[in-house]
Design a protein around this nucleic acid. Structure first.
Lengths: 231, 231
DNA sequence: TTACAAATAGTCAATTTGACCATAAATTAT
DNA sequence: ATAATTTATGGTCAAATTGACTATTTGTAA
């Protein structure tokens, strides 16, 4: 009989759940995994797990994200705790939700991983999820909508080099509105956060767009001198 | 021998800590309480406590805030969880920090309560606090600085009726800058969030300022029609 | 070589901002 | 009473930004 390790290693009252956003084909995606065991076996849900005694919650979130999806080095920050009394069946479990943005370069998470157990879902095609995961998702999406307007975090959803068209489509998808192309360009470029790359689009059947990259250092400098990102 | 109720009623791995902001005399205050028992006896710290099995964390925060300070019906929302492995001596405790804004009408919290054990501290005169409370404080203050610019929550720190001068001073205290009075007035009034009261200042040795109040309903309407608060 | 598609550039009136100056209304000092 | 003082409130004006457009460029595809 195997030793019952769990109750020694982990904090059984607190879990982590990751809300992982991706962006492809001008649509926002959410990564879900199929539960292999436990109460909600066979159902799609947010990737998550337990916190170990010897790791912080940030470390736990990073570890879980990597072990469940294969990606690392992505934008990851805490959303908040969810703790309705009856959110988890049978026992009292508080979960701390994390918020991750995955860029297109990291999109092929299934490579090497159990592809059938982790899948991107379009934001508006998310099924009914167990526990309070739909609530977490809703909260996280509203947070994204707000945050993307006040901080330059949207770039985390794009490849390192991207076109202005891609950002426009990203913002349209997140904010669920149409935006004026020339005006959006002008405003974004005037911030001087984007550095033009010496490279253009290829294999497109029209004028090739220039690539840009977001420069963290420049943003840090601007912020220190009083600049606030605003779209 | 009294029954050892605690370990049955509460979740011993998760606590609540409240970061309570107040505003008086043009200065930001933080409410601290003196610990009466436990590891950090006699030291000033953020008000907090344990979560009961049969209450949500929002309920726990509300209960603790009221029982420790006597105030109720104040702006209270979750900040986030803090969970460094060694933040609490001896055992692993995750805390969920809450963020409260108390208006001047509720300032006399000591009335009826143990005045010597709860006290307002000026933000820049906070002593060294136990656990990671200074870190929570720093995070919460940065959050306030950000949030107050993008959402009309500052009014929660003022009395129901206030003058434009009071808001100006409030913003100057939070953002730690000087602001141009006429321009600030103009911008704020143009939003149409403030309703002039039919009442003026009294007993001031200069021209009396008009009182205004913040109207939640108007804000809700404006927000639904696309308006975003921005200062 | 022309049609097209999307990128990029430019226009212009209306609005908003930032830096001010001016006046109004209250009290206190003379 | 009148003047001085203090803060509230009202205005001005050039500069910058926005929103709604039109125009031009640059690349494939017919």
């Amino acid at each position: 009989m195997p030793a019952r390790r769990f109750s020694k290693d982990i904090i059984e009252t607190v879990s982590i759940d990751c809300l992982i956003f991706g962006f492809r084909n001008s649509e926002l995606d959410i990564l879900l995994i199929k539960h292999g065991e436990g109460i909600s076996k066979g159902r799609w849900a947010l990737p998550g797990g337990w916190i170990r005694f010897n790791e912080s919650i940030d470390d736990a979130a990073t570890r879980l994200l990597t072990s469940l999806t294969g990606v690392s080095n992505v934008f990851l920050e805490q959303l908040r705790a969810f703790a309705e009394v009856d959110r988890y069946p049978g026992k009292r479990v508080i979960t701390i939700a994390y918020f991750a943005l995955i860029n297109a370069d990291n999109y092929s998470l299934s490579a090497g991983f159990t592809a059938s157990d982790a899948r991107w879902f379009k934001l508006h095609e998310i099924p009914r999820l167990p526990y309070d995961h739909n609530k977490i998702l809703k909260t996280g999406f509203q947070y994204l909508q707000h945050k993307v307007r006040h901080e330059p975090i949207g770039f985390n959803l794009l490849p390192k080099k991207f076109t202005l068209h891609q950002i426009l489509k990203l913002y349209e998808a997140i904010l669920e509105t149409e935006l004026d192309k020339p005006n959006f360009r002008r405003k974004l470029l005037k911030m001087n956060l984007l550095v033009p790359c010496d490279e253009k689009q290829r294999d497109v059947s029209h004028r090739a767009a220039n690539f840009y990259r977001f420069d963290k250092k420049i943003y840090k400098q601007l912020k220190e001198s009083g600049f606030t990102f605003q779209l």
